[in-house]
Design a protein around this nucleic acid. Structure first.
Lengths: 341, 341
DNA sequence: TTGAAAGCGCTAACAA
DNA sequence: TTGTTAGCGCTTTCAA
């Protein structure tokens, strides 16, 4: 598309009557180049409007200093904080991050992996789509020894570090809290149970019930895509239940908030009739009334750790023993779940 | 990082006893290549684990099929919808989008422009950071005839198409609505007034007042970064005003919602004592109580139009006459502002 | 401290 | 329909 021809290191070399090799060195922090030569080169480069050609450089070096990131969606607070953390660490270490969303589709995820692979990312960080059945589409990376890291929604894949919270424990904590508030019939809004995060939260829920010798009723577990729409749908289902449940634990805040709205419209008192706990500590949890009890979960930190882990692998290039990194979570108790003093 | 050597078109050519050029053609939809030759090539490529080398290709073609996108932040609903629209159109046309956030910092914006420029994006789409003073850092793109498009937070730059809504009119609509509800002392929470979007909304606000012969009181305009924090701060300022204002029009929903929360805590009745209008139609506006009246604003469409406009420029490569595209907005009236039947 | 030269993998003009 | 060939711009090895 460009009209004006690009200025290359050859042009600079010619103008300065030195060799392209020297120019190349001068443009970098190459050791063993005279200070004034370097200065001369830098000046001329600016003067001539030189623009580094990343492609030529990457082609030659077989390295891109780029980390790929594939996530289901960009539109959550959690994901923004993850990305912020990743970019921070990556940039500090001279890496760029290229981002792609799978929009929860396995097909798009495959396409993204291919694009990233063809763009020769040095490493790839992934949180998988809802319907991704397995990890075959990542095989090509591993065959080339390109480090692959999963976070949050992970796949068990030999040789890949994974970064998660203890979803089982978090689900347990949330449910136990509801039980302590006197709930006995707790609806669980679950995500796709093929995903570790949602399966873990459900297991934690079950375990808490079991601990209190409360019968697990599969009819109280509603699995959906955790969208707003789904939250509203769940609310309607709940309103049709008899007796009504006395608690709700949802696997994300978005759906829970939508559900609460609908229940409130129907005249249900929260937390008196139904106590509610969400997941994610999305800003929305402090807006809904009553404010939502939820699980807080360190997005920024997850991003930072993912980035630094992959950069470590890139530098050391030795096989690290680190396999699973578990970050802490915490139950943030707000009014939506408090029934006892 | 890769251990196993990459398979190239030469390897395929050798294995098949044909020329690399033919392989290159076979891998694409090149007209004038025999069907069975193509099939043979594709098969061998798969069998050998061939991976297209984007760098070599880009270097050779001097074209990347990549569109750069620089935005202040990724963490808003509006931005997610914009990006979704852009990626949709871009992908349909064989382009990739690479995304970068300026985090509202001019310095980071410059760095992003440079990175994108060095990555030889075919075109660049930008919504500028809060403190960007001017457009000099985009000059290099224009000098190379790389199409540049601004959306939402634009800069007036000759030769750049801009995509906006009529912020003046939207500000006017919002304010006029409050006036019609009987408000007379309306606080305006404004963003950085160097940005067209916020300046326009403020002007619209002023114009609506003037139309009703209401004196414009600069003390009622509070300019800030429109964060949650800022919304809370504004609430405290408002609580110190005497007499209290009877309306609030804020330039985004985030700050307005935070402000409402604080006011409610202080016992202010909304909309009875203070009627409130926000901007963006963020999902949060339907969660806060009372639900927030706000300006709806077509993010997805803005993204789609931005992408298709830039792709058009890329293809036609003729100078288009389109200069400014204005999308419609609408006032979504909810309970936070209704005082009259 | 600098230079010469080869080659990263691909594409396209031209020729056959 | 296919092949030959040059070269995109850069980095790096080896030599000076």
């Amino acid at each position: 598309m460009s009209n004006a021809k690009d200025v290359t290191i050859y042009d600079i070399a010619e103008a300065l009557n030195i060799s392209p090799a020297t120019v190349s060195r001068g443009l970098k922090d190459h050791p063993g180049i005279r200070k004034d030569t370097k200065k001369k080169i830098l000046e001329m480069a600016r003067k001539m409007g030189y623009q580094h050609n990343t492609f030529a450089s990457n082609l030659r070096r077989k390295r891109t200093n780029t980390i790929g990131l594939i996530v289901p969606r960009l539109n959550s607070y959690f994901m923004s904080t993850v990305i912020a953390g990743m970019e921070k660490v990556a940039n500090e270490n001279g890496y760029n991050v290229i981002i792609s969303q799978s929009l929860e589709s396995y097909k798009k995820e495959i396409a993204s992996v291919n694009t990233m692979f063809n763009s020769r990312v040095d490493g790839l960080i992934v949180s998988v789509a809802a319907d991704t059945p397995g990890g075959e589409h990542f095989e090509m990376l591993l065959r080339k020894n390109i480090p692959l890291i999963f976070f949050d929604r992970i796949l068990e894949h030999p040789g890949c570090t994974t970064i998660v919270i203890d979803n089982f424990r978090a689900g347990y904590d949330a449910t136990r809290h509801l039980l302590e508030q006197g709930c006995r019939r707790i609806v669980h809004i679950a995500g796709n149970l093929n995903r570790n995060v949602y399966a873990g939260r459900l297991e934690g829920y079950k375990h808490a019930l079991q601990e209190r010798k409360i019968h697990f009723d599969p009819a109280l577990v509603i699995s959906c895509n955790l969208s707003e729409q789904c939250g509203s749908d769940v609310a309607r289902q709940i309103l049709g239940m008899s007796p009504l449940p006395d608690g709700i634990f949802g696997a994300n805040d978005t759906s829970v908030v939508a559900c609460m709205r609908e229940l409130k419209l129907a005249g249900i008192k929260i937390p008196e009739q139904i106590a509610v706990v969400g997941f994610n500590n999305d800003p929305i949890s402090k807006v809904i009334e009553p404010n939502l009890t939820t699980i807080n979960y360190p997005g920024q930190e997850m991003g930072e750790i993912a980035a630094s882990t992959i950069i470590n692998k890139l530098n050391k290039s030795g096989t690290s023993t680190l396999d699973t990194i578990v970050l802490r979570h915490e139950l943030v108790i707000r009014k939506s779940s408090i029934r006892k003093k």
